[in-house]
């Protein structure tokens, strides 16, 4: 009892601290939201006006898209394979094994394919953009562009955000297709379904309303990955230490935004279905 009283007394001066921490965190959060909004507005203010950096855009599309194909392809294949193997026993219990290709296809196309691929892209592309831009900031390369009379926001930020917005949907479609091949392999581990029959079942089940909203939301995923990576890297102010911080926070914030966008997309899509 005495001990408890002492503890209570001792902790009294610390009481305001959590409150202050909360206020400080809330302040930081709103400041971050405000800065990110400004950054986004600046993107839309500048993206439609010349000068257009097409060469840099193509270079970034190659880096973001083509170089991510192997990773996205392998993970897509494993995703399809594992989902099929895991779903089979449950469907088998109800004697609905023949529904396996269609069920897996709908899961992959509607939800798992876009979200998992976007999360992989947030890890690979978002972190790379965050680290690259933070490193450019730390080594004064962004300042060097500015003093050369070149707008670094147009050259660095707009091209990268545009590249991720255009490439992530392509990567998701590629990953979905490979995942269906993975699913076909999974079906054939314990069964014998020919290629034609498997894909006939898949396309019988899939509807336009499964594919269209899923593809549309991937543009937003791509935009979010590029935006957060660029925002974190471009505004990094902590020298070389900031490179790691930017890469890390680009992945964390990018992943979180992907889930938030997905939640909103599902709600919006359900209004039209």
């Amino acid at each position: 009892m005495e001990e408890a009283k002492n503890t209570s007394k001792d902790s009294e001066p610390d009481d305001p601290a959590p409150q202050n921490n909360f206020l400080s965190s809330a302040k930081d959060f709103f400041l971050e939201v405000s800065l990110l909004s400004n950054f986004t507005l600046r993107f839309f203010r500048e993206v439609f006006f010349p000068r257009y950096e097409f060469n840099e855009l193509i270079k970034q599309c190659y880096r973001v898209g083509y170089r991510s194909l192997p990773l996205v392809g392998i993970t897509g294949f494993i995703m399809g394979l594992v989902l099929t193997i895991q779903s089979r026993p449950t469907l088998a219990e109800f004697g609905a094994e023949s529904w396996l290709p269609g069920m897996v296809a709908v899961s992959i196309i509607r939800e798992i394919g876009p979200v998992i691929t976007a999360l992989i892209c947030a890890g690979k592309i978002g972190s790379s953009i965050g680290a690259e831009l933070a490193s450019m900031r730390a080594s004064e390369q962004i300042d060097a562009m500015q003093v050369s009379g070149i707008n670094p926001f147009k050259y660095i930020v707009i091209t990268r955000i545009a590249a991720t917005t255009l490439m992530v949907p392509i990567l998701v479609i590629f990953s979905d297709v490979i995942a269906l091949f993975g699913s076909y392999a999974g079906v054939n581990i314990k069964g014998d379904v020919n290629f034609h029959l498997f894909f006939a079942q898949v396309f019988n089940i899939l509807k336009f309303s499964d594919v269209f909203p899923a593809v549309i939301k991937t543009f937003f995923f791509g935009f979010a990955i590029g935006l957060i990576g660029c925002y974190k890297g471009y505004n990094s102010n902590e020298g070389t230490e900031g490179v790691g911080i930017s890469a890390n926070s680009a992945v964390v914030m990018g992943s979180l935004l992907i889930f938030i966008i997905d939640m909103i997309a599902v709600q919006v899509a359900s209004l039209f279905m």
Binding site: S135, M136, S139, E140, Q141, D143, A144, M145
Partner: peptide, 8 residues
């Protein structure tokens, strides 16, 4: 620039 700031 002090670091020359060449584009890597």
């Amino acid at each position: 620039f002090q670091s020359a700031a060449l584009y890597d």
